[in-house]
Amino acid sequence: MSVVLRVEGLSKRFGGFTALQSVDLQVSARERLGLIGPNGSGKTTLINCISGALYNDTGRIVFEGHEITRLPPYKRARLGIARSFQIPKPFRSMTVLENLRIPLEYAAWSRAEHRRITDEAMHVLETIGLEDLANKNSGDLTQVDMRKLELARALAAKPKVLVSDEAMAGLSGAEVDEIIDILLALNKTGVAVIMIEHIMRAVMKFSERVAVLDAGQKIADGDPQSVIADPEVQRAYLGE
Protein backbone atom coordinates (compact mmCIF):
# COMPACT_ATOMS: atom_id res chain seq x y z
CA MET A 1 0.00 0.00 0.00
CA SER A 2 1.18 3.52 -0.76
CA VAL A 3 2.50 5.71 2.04
CA VAL A 4 0.34 8.81 2.49
CA LEU A 5 2.05 10.45 5.47
CA ARG A 6 5.68 10.09 6.45
CA VAL A 7 7.33 11.62 9.52
CA GLU A 8 11.13 11.51 9.54
CA GLY A 9 13.42 12.22 12.50
CA LEU A 10 10.98 14.60 14.14
CA SER A 11 12.26 16.45 17.24
CA LYS A 12 10.63 19.12 19.33
CA ARG A 13 11.91 20.83 22.46
CA PHE A 14 10.12 23.19 24.84
CA GLY A 15 12.84 25.11 26.66
CA GLY A 16 14.91 22.40 28.28
CA PHE A 17 12.25 19.73 27.94
CA THR A 18 12.47 17.30 25.02
CA ALA A 19 8.95 16.46 23.95
CA LEU A 20 9.87 14.48 20.86
CA GLN A 21 13.19 12.94 19.94
CA SER A 22 13.78 11.88 16.33
CA VAL A 23 10.49 10.11 15.84
CA ASP A 24 9.82 8.25 12.57
CA LEU A 25 6.31 7.27 11.60
CA GLN A 26 4.57 6.15 8.42
CA VAL A 27 0.91 5.95 7.61
CA SER A 28 -0.36 4.13 4.53
CA ALA A 29 -3.45 5.09 2.61
CA ARG A 30 -6.64 3.68 4.22
CA GLU A 31 -4.68 2.41 7.21
CA ARG A 32 -5.96 2.31 10.80
CA LEU A 33 -3.12 3.26 13.14
CA GLY A 34 -3.36 3.38 16.90
CA LEU A 35 -0.97 5.75 18.67
CA ILE A 36 -0.54 5.10 22.36
CA GLY A 37 1.77 6.08 25.18
CA PRO A 38 1.62 7.28 28.80
CA ASN A 39 0.68 10.85 29.66
CA GLY A 40 3.42 13.28 28.63
CA SER A 41 4.94 10.79 26.19
CA GLY A 42 4.61 13.24 23.29
CA LYS A 43 1.47 11.99 21.50
CA THR A 44 -0.23 15.38 21.50
CA THR A 45 2.98 17.15 20.51
CA LEU A 46 3.37 14.74 17.61
CA ILE A 47 -0.12 15.34 16.25
CA ASN A 48 0.25 19.07 16.81
CA CYS A 49 3.37 18.90 14.63
CA ILE A 50 1.53 16.85 12.01
CA SER A 51 -1.46 19.20 11.89
CA GLY A 52 0.78 22.27 11.99
CA ALA A 53 -0.31 23.76 15.30
CA LEU A 54 3.36 23.47 16.35
CA TYR A 55 6.45 23.58 14.17
CA ASN A 56 9.01 20.84 14.80
CA ASP A 57 12.67 21.79 15.43
CA THR A 58 14.31 19.14 13.27
CA GLY A 59 13.10 16.42 10.92
CA ARG A 60 10.55 16.57 8.14
CA ILE A 61 6.95 15.72 7.43
CA VAL A 62 6.02 14.47 3.96
CA PHE A 63 2.42 14.21 2.80
CA GLU A 64 1.72 12.42 -0.48
CA GLY A 65 5.26 13.06 -1.65
CA HIS A 66 5.25 16.82 -0.80
CA GLU A 67 7.18 18.19 2.11
CA ILE A 68 4.77 20.08 4.41
CA THR A 69 7.13 20.68 7.35
CA ARG A 70 6.74 24.47 7.26
CA LEU A 71 3.20 24.80 5.95
CA PRO A 72 0.65 26.57 8.17
CA PRO A 73 -2.21 24.42 9.54
CA TYR A 74 -4.84 25.68 7.09
CA LYS A 75 -2.75 24.61 4.10
CA ARG A 76 -2.28 21.14 5.56
CA ALA A 77 -6.04 20.94 6.11
CA ARG A 78 -6.53 21.85 2.46
CA LEU A 79 -4.13 19.12 1.36
CA GLY A 80 -6.06 16.54 3.33
CA ILE A 81 -4.94 16.31 6.95
CA ALA A 82 -7.84 16.74 9.35
CA ARG A 83 -7.93 16.49 13.10
CA SER A 84 -10.43 16.40 15.90
CA PHE A 85 -9.72 18.01 19.26
CA GLN A 86 -9.59 16.21 22.57
CA ILE A 87 -11.50 19.07 24.22
CA PRO A 88 -14.24 19.80 21.67
CA LYS A 89 -13.97 23.18 20.00
CA PRO A 90 -17.30 23.74 18.26
CA PHE A 91 -18.05 27.06 16.54
CA ARG A 92 -20.50 28.00 19.22
CA SER A 93 -22.39 30.73 17.40
CA MET A 94 -23.34 28.24 14.66
CA THR A 95 -25.70 25.31 14.36
CA VAL A 96 -24.32 21.80 13.90
CA LEU A 97 -24.90 22.01 10.14
CA GLU A 98 -23.23 25.43 9.89
CA ASN A 99 -20.22 24.03 11.72
CA LEU A 100 -19.64 21.69 8.78
CA ARG A 101 -19.93 24.46 6.23
CA ILE A 102 -16.59 25.89 7.42
CA PRO A 103 -14.37 22.91 6.47
CA LEU A 104 -16.46 22.30 3.34
CA GLU A 105 -16.07 25.91 2.24
CA TYR A 106 -12.41 26.21 3.23
CA ALA A 107 -10.42 22.99 3.64
CA ALA A 108 -12.38 21.07 0.99
CA TRP A 109 -13.31 24.04 -1.22
CA SER A 110 -11.33 22.80 -4.22
CA ARG A 111 -12.93 19.37 -3.89
CA ALA A 112 -16.49 20.41 -2.97
CA GLU A 113 -19.46 21.15 -5.16
CA HIS A 114 -19.95 24.82 -4.41
CA ARG A 115 -23.69 24.83 -5.02
CA ARG A 116 -24.41 21.78 -2.90
CA ILE A 117 -22.58 22.61 0.34
CA THR A 118 -25.68 22.08 2.50
CA ASP A 119 -26.36 18.69 0.92
CA GLU A 120 -22.77 17.65 1.43
CA ALA A 121 -22.88 18.76 5.06
CA MET A 122 -26.10 16.83 5.58
CA HIS A 123 -24.50 13.76 4.02
CA VAL A 124 -21.60 13.94 6.49
CA LEU A 125 -24.03 14.31 9.39
CA GLU A 126 -25.83 11.17 8.24
CA THR A 127 -22.56 9.24 8.13
CA ILE A 128 -21.87 10.25 11.73
CA GLY A 129 -25.48 9.93 12.88
CA LEU A 130 -26.01 13.57 13.82
CA GLU A 131 -28.61 14.39 11.16
CA ASP A 132 -31.40 14.89 13.71
CA LEU A 133 -29.37 17.59 15.44
CA ALA A 134 -28.48 19.48 12.25
CA ASN A 135 -30.23 22.69 13.27
CA LYS A 136 -29.38 22.55 16.94
CA ASN A 137 -27.02 25.13 18.39
CA SER A 138 -23.61 23.49 18.60
CA GLY A 139 -22.90 24.93 22.04
CA ASP A 140 -25.88 23.07 23.50
CA LEU A 141 -24.79 19.53 22.54
CA THR A 142 -24.08 16.74 25.02
CA GLN A 143 -20.49 15.58 25.50
CA VAL A 144 -20.79 12.57 23.22
CA ASP A 145 -22.53 14.59 20.50
CA MET A 146 -19.80 17.21 20.70
CA ARG A 147 -17.20 14.47 20.11
CA LYS A 148 -19.23 13.32 17.13
CA LEU A 149 -19.39 16.89 15.85
CA GLU A 150 -15.59 17.05 16.12
CA LEU A 151 -15.34 13.97 13.92
CA ALA A 152 -18.03 15.22 11.55
CA ARG A 153 -16.20 18.52 11.10
CA ALA A 154 -12.94 16.71 10.47
CA LEU A 155 -14.67 14.47 7.93
CA ALA A 156 -16.27 17.46 6.18
CA ALA A 157 -12.74 18.62 5.34
CA LYS A 158 -12.63 15.57 3.01
CA PRO A 159 -9.33 14.38 4.42
CA LYS A 160 -6.99 11.61 3.36
CA VAL A 161 -5.67 11.32 6.89
CA LEU A 162 -7.79 11.90 9.95
CA VAL A 163 -6.19 12.36 13.35
CA SER A 164 -8.59 11.53 16.16
CA ASP A 165 -7.26 12.95 19.45
CA GLU A 166 -8.78 11.03 22.38
CA ALA A 167 -12.28 11.21 20.97
CA MET A 168 -13.52 8.79 23.61
CA ALA A 169 -12.02 10.07 26.86
CA GLY A 170 -14.66 10.25 29.55
CA LEU A 171 -17.38 8.48 27.56
CA SER A 172 -19.38 5.45 28.70
CA GLY A 173 -18.78 1.95 27.31
CA ALA A 174 -21.71 2.10 24.89
CA GLU A 175 -20.65 5.56 23.72
CA VAL A 176 -17.10 4.31 23.14
CA ASP A 177 -18.47 1.56 20.89
CA GLU A 178 -20.50 4.16 19.02
CA ILE A 179 -17.41 6.28 18.32
CA ILE A 180 -15.40 3.20 17.27
CA ASP A 181 -18.13 2.29 14.80
CA ILE A 182 -18.06 5.84 13.39
CA LEU A 183 -14.29 5.72 12.99
CA LEU A 184 -14.52 2.31 11.29
CA ALA A 185 -17.17 3.66 8.92
CA LEU A 186 -15.00 6.68 8.11
CA ASN A 187 -12.08 4.39 7.41
CA LYS A 188 -14.25 2.40 4.99
CA THR A 189 -14.81 5.56 2.93
CA GLY A 190 -11.06 5.54 2.22
CA VAL A 191 -9.65 7.75 4.98
CA ALA A 192 -6.54 6.70 6.87
CA VAL A 193 -7.15 7.18 10.60
CA ILE A 194 -4.61 7.83 13.34
CA MET A 195 -6.31 7.13 16.63
CA ILE A 196 -4.77 8.54 19.80
CA GLU A 197 -6.40 6.83 22.72
CA HIS A 198 -5.93 5.68 26.30
CA ILE A 199 -8.76 3.18 26.21
CA MET A 200 -6.87 -0.02 25.27
CA ARG A 201 -10.02 -1.92 24.39
CA ALA A 202 -10.79 0.67 21.71
CA VAL A 203 -7.22 0.71 20.41
CA MET A 204 -7.09 -3.09 20.12
CA LYS A 205 -10.48 -3.31 18.47
CA PHE A 206 -9.82 -0.53 15.98
CA SER A 207 -6.15 -0.64 14.99
CA GLU A 208 -4.45 -2.64 12.27
CA ARG A 209 -1.13 -1.38 13.59
CA VAL A 210 -0.06 0.25 16.85
CA ALA A 211 2.81 2.64 17.52
CA VAL A 212 3.96 3.41 21.06
CA LEU A 213 5.58 6.61 22.28
CA ASP A 214 7.43 6.88 25.56
CA ALA A 215 9.29 9.95 26.80
CA GLY A 216 9.32 11.44 23.32
CA GLN A 217 10.66 8.35 21.55
CA LYS A 218 8.94 5.68 19.55
CA ILE A 219 9.60 2.40 21.36
CA ALA A 220 7.44 0.01 19.33
CA ASP A 221 5.56 -0.13 16.04
CA GLY A 222 3.82 -3.20 14.64
CA ASP A 223 0.71 -5.33 14.75
CA PRO A 224 -1.32 -4.79 17.94
CA GLN A 225 -0.80 -8.22 19.50
CA SER A 226 2.98 -8.28 19.24
CA VAL A 227 3.28 -4.63 20.34
CA ILE A 228 1.28 -5.37 23.47
CA ALA A 229 3.45 -8.40 24.15
CA ASP A 230 6.65 -6.38 23.80
CA PRO A 231 8.28 -6.27 27.27
CA GLU A 232 9.56 -2.73 26.74
CA VAL A 233 6.04 -1.51 26.01
CA GLN A 234 4.69 -3.30 29.04
CA ARG A 235 7.35 -1.75 31.22
CA ALA A 236 6.80 1.78 29.86
CA TYR A 237 3.13 1.90 29.25
CA LEU A 238 1.34 -0.70 31.25
CA GLY A 239 3.53 -0.36 34.30
CA GLU A 240 5.52 -3.08 35.94
Binding site: A77, F91, A157
Partner: peptide
Protein backbone atom coordinates in the same frame (compact mmCIF):
# COMPACT_ATOMS: atom_id res chain seq x y z
CA UNK B 1 -20.86 35.22 2.61
CA UNK B 2 -18.24 32.49 2.69
CA UNK B 3 -15.77 35.12 3.91
CA UNK B 4 -18.16 36.14 6.68
CA UNK B 5 -18.56 32.52 7.82
CA UNK B 6 -14.78 32.22 7.91
CA UNK B 7 -14.63 35.32 10.12
CA UNK B 8 -17.30 33.89 12.42
CA UNK B 9 -15.27 30.68 12.71
CA UNK B 10 -12.25 32.76 13.76
CA UNK B 11 -14.34 34.57 16.35
CA UNK B 12 -15.71 31.33 17.76
CA UNK B 13 -12.45 29.35 17.86
CA UNK B 14 -9.37 30.44 16.00
CA UNK B 15 -7.43 27.15 16.28
CA UNK B 16 -10.38 25.08 15.15
CA UNK B 17 -10.93 27.50 12.26
CA UNK B 18 -7.33 27.18 11.11
CA UNK B 19 -7.57 23.38 11.27
CA UNK B 20 -10.76 23.54 9.20
CA UNK B 21 -8.74 25.19 6.45
CA UNK B 22 -9.52 28.84 7.22
CA UNK B 23 -6.50 31.07 6.46
CA UNK B 24 -6.98 32.94 9.73
CA UNK B 25 -4.22 35.55 9.44
Amino acid sequence: SRLGRGLAAIRDDEIAAECAGVPTL
